[in-house]
Design a protein around this nucleic acid. Structure first.
Lengths: 340, 340
DNA sequence: CGATTGATTTAAAGCGCTTTGGTTAGGGCA
DNA sequence: TGCCCTAACCAAAGCGCTTTAAATCAATCG
């Protein structure tokens, strides 16, 4: 059933039927009711391909998920997208997901803009000097960055957590507990968030005039295996750390395994603080959480990012929107005083 | 730049330009070159909204991810979609992702079909007597199920692993190692795959005339926390299990934590076999894998499912396609002989 | 009572492609 | 030379909506 058939059926013009369904005011209320009833009865919904052409809107938001050379799909994206999806469906938008490795990224953004298949995009995990931000500004495609690129001075919309501050505080806590040798297991160096977290960690150590060990920062994909390998290597050094700061829950699972394997116990022999994105498959919210953690829900960030983007699309002349999320430090079972 | 502008520029009709770009044979090769060059030069790509209306194809596949009442986003979907995405981009399709809870599922499928925003869908994690399969058959919307509904006798396309067989073998191995009290930590009972795995487990025990303990099967979302709670409870029973069979890597991380917490060691005191979906963030492929596991790559399943669906869309009269994946049992460090 | 107004409704254009049904020009053949 | 064929191109219709511009009709007003 299409609009023509429905309006023939009703003895009305397509115009009136279309207007009735779209709640335009110039339609008699009685007619509107009749139209809506018939539409429901026949299960009529406007063909979205036609609507999109006619209105010039794709009613779709693009998420281009970067996959690096190691081809891993970070579970964080799942929860972020679950959050975003809520916002989209509330406002009649759809979500288009593309997986892209770094080399094809630029051409994908150009294609998307040129084909007009989306009204805007979310930029995931910005890197240092991220070319995507400049590109999207050129292409005039509305976008919101999840995270920031601190090396980019231009104005753009983003939602981010206070990475530097969170890791500064976490490091501080560990030092207050007497830890002097703290190992940071961080995300890949090229990513802005990882750099900010390192900065917080370094700043805190510097404040207390503690030297940063040569091998005390690990950078890489925060997989379970990498967490395990990083922590195992750290624990095998002569001056082995008494505490770990881990940038993700999943990475911390590997760290926990390494600690156990070394015959030590987390929280007693070795302290661990993680950043907890509150992934739904990895709750850390018992009365006494398993891990002491800085916390920020990535699902919430996804929902907010989506809402911001839709707002920008609705009123493009608005100044760029930004939102800084706090990541409070919550004490769990994985930290304790340093052993002498 | 649109088709009209481009063809004016070239002094050709829209027809010829369109045909040249779409590699229709009735265009002079020299003209075709000229057109393609100009298109590239101006960065012209056909507006996808217009193409979709004109061709009547959405060039989009829908993935409707079910989210149950607990609102958790299973990381498995991430890798599955990463696989599917490869297939789509190779063939010029896009992926549209929707998150739906069970009550809204039916209406979402109906809407999608009626609006014509996708050419087909992937059905995720089928349940027992899953209404979605019948619904999609009625709606005549092409689909491929990831998994099966064994209670549905009709013909439909699916890709699945041999769940019953895999868990039968895994249970058998544990029994061969002398384990008599084996706890199964499984996915939610309403899901077809979980039921098949239970069946394999039960069949193997029955074959050896071993009684199935009343509390030896746990069902629920396979989160880390649930794995921990299930294993903790099992280990606190009077007749505590000497082995666990866990339906996912993530669940097994919780089981591992519970084992450690009980002061036991995995592989020595307690054996564990998992099903390993080969998620990219949770590799289990060391020389000696951490976990003994039945293995089947969900990313591969995603890619194959997508390819099957595109084939079905291209030739709808083809008989339903099916593909059964093997899940070989690989020995890792988490199993050993039962303690007497 | 004719003109004006406002509330409804409609015909038709337009969104930017693809595709149908031609048209044109040149070459081959009897 | 005249006819047919084929290669190459084109005008216009059509996809199913939205939206502009215009029409209709009853009510109102001076």
């Amino acid at each position: 059933m299409n609009l023509k058939q429905l309006s023939d059926q009703l003895g009305l013009s397509q115009t009136t039927v279309s207007r009735a369904l779209n709640n335009y005011p110039e339609v008699n209320e009685h007619t509107r009711e009749r139209v809506k009833l018939a539409a429901r009865k026949h299960g009529y919904l406007p063909n979205s391909r036609a609507t999109r052409l006619a209105t010039g809107k794709a009613m779709t938001i693009g998420h281009i998920i970067p996959i690096n050379s190691t081809e891993v799909f970070n579970p964080i994206f799942g929860d972020f997208i679950a959050g975003a999806s809520r916002a989209y469906s509330k406002r009649g938008y759809e979500l288009s997901l593309t997986i892209a490795n770094e080399d094809s990224e630029e051409s994908i953004y150009r294609q998307i803009a040129s084909k007009g298949s989306v009204d805007g995009v979310i930029v995931h995990t910005p890197r240092i000097n991220d070319p995507r931000i400049t590109l999207l500004q050129q292409l005039q495609l509305p976008f919101v960055v999840h995270g920031r690129d601190h090396s980019n001075q231009s104005e753009y919309s983003w939602i981010d957590m206070n990475n530097r501050r969170a890791f500064y505080q976490a490091t501080k806590l560990l030092m207050d507990l007497g830890h002097k040798n703290i190992c940071l297991v961080n995300g890949s160096d090229s990513l802005n968030f990882a750099q900010r977290r390192s900065q917080g960690y370094i700043d805190a150590l510097t404040d207390e005039q503690i030297n940063i060990g040569a091998n005390s920062i690990y950078s890489g994909d925060l997989t379970e295996a990498n967490g395990f390998n990083a922590a195992s290597a750290a624990l095998n050094q002569s001056e082995s750390p008494t505490a770990f700061l881990v940038s993700s829950y999943v990475g911390a699972l590997g760290v926990r395994r390494a600690i156990h394997k070394a015959g030590l116990e987390m929280g007693r022999d070795i302290s661990v603080i993680i950043h907890d994105d509150e992934l739904s498959y990895f709750q850390n919210d018992d009365d006494i959480p398993q891990f002491t953690a800085t916390r920020s829900s990535v699902r919430y960030a996804g929902e907010r990012a989506a809402m911001m983007l839709l707002d920008i699309i609705d009123s493009p002349d608005k100044a760029p929107l930004t939102e800084l999320l706090d990541a409070p430090l919550t004490i769990g079972a994985s930290t304790g005083p340093a052993k002498k």
